[in-house]
């Protein structure tokens, strides 16, 4: 070869083109690859730094949990408002489920084992008034709130979770209790629950006020269609 070949720009352009085109195929390809390597991934999962999770917060500091002082206030359009201690919440009927957690930014964590309380058991305590059409979930991470309709709140896998993968909910996942609604993206799954208010109708939560969909169905909201 007499003249040098211009391979440098070739490497650059192929890498850029491959990277940009991966916006169309990256997640599907990763799902297949991670499926193939799952036996290895399973073996090293306990030492992996993220195990697939990322921790999103909107304020400077994550709320801390003190079992002696924490209360879950449930009020609004109910017959009997209550303020439950951690022990009282733990004494409610326990439910368990293994579900997938989807974040609207594109990452997913499969097979998460949750334990907690179904909302219908909380409703049995407070007795919602007929005009209650929605629930406001208030996070201790001010100013984070979000809403569900009454119908959404009693979907089979909706839960107030206090355990994750066999352990008390860690601080970064919303200790001591978070909302879980696997059918919707993570921003509806309010962490660090401090209160639930029954309201006439749902309103826009924290991210919805910034343009995200109020009904955050996985795969069919927020610009996604599966």
């Amino acid at each position: 070869m007499d003249e040098p070949r211009k391979y440098g720009r070739g490497v650059f352009l192929v890498t850029v083109a491959g990277g940009l085109s991966s916006l169309a195929w990256g997640k599907a390809a990763w799902s297949k690859v991670s499926g193939i390597v799952s036996p290895i991934a399973g073996a090293i999962a306990p030492i992996l730094p993220t195990q697939g999770w990322r921790i999103y917060t909107v304020s400077d500091h994550m709320p801390t949990f003190d079992p002696a002082t924490w209360r879950l206030a449930v009020g609004g359009l109910v017959e009997k408002p209550v303020s439950l201690s951690y022990a009282q919440v733990r004494a409610l009927p326990r439910a368990e489920q293994v579900t997938t957690f989807h974040c609207v930014t594109g990452w997913t964590v499969t097979n998460v084992h949750w334990a907690g309380v179904r909302l219908k058991d909380v409703f049995d305590l407070v007795k919602p008034l007929p005009q209650a059409g929605g629930l406001q979930f208030v996070s201790a991470e001010d100013p984070y709130v979000d809403y569900l309709t009454m119908q959404q709140s009693v979907l089979p896998e909706v839960m107030l979770a206090y355990e994750m993968d066999g352990k008390p909910l860690p601080q970064e996942h919303g200790a001591p209790m978070r909302l879980i609604i696997p059918e919707m993206y993570g921003y509806k799954n309010v962490k660090w629950l401090a209160g639930i208010n029954l309201v006439q109708q749902p309103a826009d939560g924290y991210w919805e006020q910034l343009g995200y969909d109020r009904d955050a169905w996985v795969g069919r909201s927020n610009g996604y269609s599966s």
Binding site: S22, L23, A24, K27, G106, G223, Y224
Partner: peptide, 11 residues
Amino acid sequence: TRFRFASTVVL
């Protein structure tokens, strides 16, 4: 939402 792709975070 026009700029929301499930694969961006993977990339």
